[in-house]
Simulated assay, not measured.
Amino acid sequence: MEIVTPKLGLIFWQLVIFLLVLFLLAKFAWKPILVALRDREDSIDNALRMAEQAKLEMQNLKAGNEKLLADARHERDQMLKEGQNIANQLVEKAKTDATEEANRIAQQARESIQQEKNQALAEVRNTAAQLSVDIAERLLRRELADPAAQQKLVDEYLKDVKLN
């Protein structure tokens, strides 16, 4: 039962030892422990603040990246649109140039054909005229071989000619 009910001497010495340990701890260990705890608390606060700042910076960077990405997409779309427009213009210009060239070649061909046709007709006329003259000359030689036939032809021409 002595263990359950301690004596006054034991309580006194326990109290003295407790106060002595408390004094020693307060004198030598309490301040360094408090300083260490305060330093740890400050470092934790700093770490939390830095984490919050990093989080905000990450959000800002993410927003900036999304904006840059949107701008890049817009610029890409704009460049594709411009490229498509330029390609369409080039195709349209090539079609126009080809049509103009085809029309010019066709016109030159028509003119060349017309010139060749005119030359051929002139040649045919010349040949026909030459043949007509040759035929007329042969006929006249045959008919005008006789002086009486010559006089008769002159008289017929004179009858056809009317004098005013």
Rank of each mutant, 00 (worst) to 15 (best):
M1E: 06
M1G: 06
V4A: 14
T5I: 06
K7C: 14
L8T: 07
G9P: 05
I11A: 06
W13K: 04
I17L: 15
I17P: 01
F18H: 11
V21F: 14
L22A: 06
L22I: 00
A29W: 09
K31E: 07
K31W: 00
P32I: 01
P32M: 01
P32K: 02
V35A: 00
R38C: 01
D39V: 00
R40T: 04
E41L: 01
I44W: 00
I44S: 02
N46R: 12
A47S: 13
A47Y: 10
R49Q: 14
A51G: 07
E52M: 02
E52A: 06
Q53Y: 05
Q53S: 07
A54R: 07
M58H: 12
L61C: 03
K62C: 09
G64N: 13
G64L: 11
N65H: 09
E66K: 07
K67S: 01
L68N: 09
A70L: 04
A72M: 03
R73H: 02
H74R: 10
E75G: 00
D77Y: 05
Q78E: 12
L80F: 14
L80M: 10
K81T: 14
Q84S: 00
N85K: 13
I86F: 02
Q89C: 00
V91T: 13
V91M: 10
E92I: 03
D97C: 00
T99D: 09
E100W: 14
E101V: 08
A102L: 01
R110T: 04
S112G: 08
Q114W: 04
Q115H: 15
E116W: 01
L121C: 01
L121P: 00
A122G: 10
E123A: 14
V124W: 10
V124Q: 15
N126L: 12
A129F: 11
Q130P: 03
Q130T: 13
S132L: 14
D134I: 12
A136L: 11
L139W: 02
R141V: 07
E143W: 07
D146G: 04
A148D: 11
Q150E: 13
Q151T: 07
K152E: 15
K152P: 03
V154I: 06
E156I: 07
Y157N: 11
Y157C: 14
L158C: 11
L158M: 10
D160R: 04
K162M: 13
N164V: 09
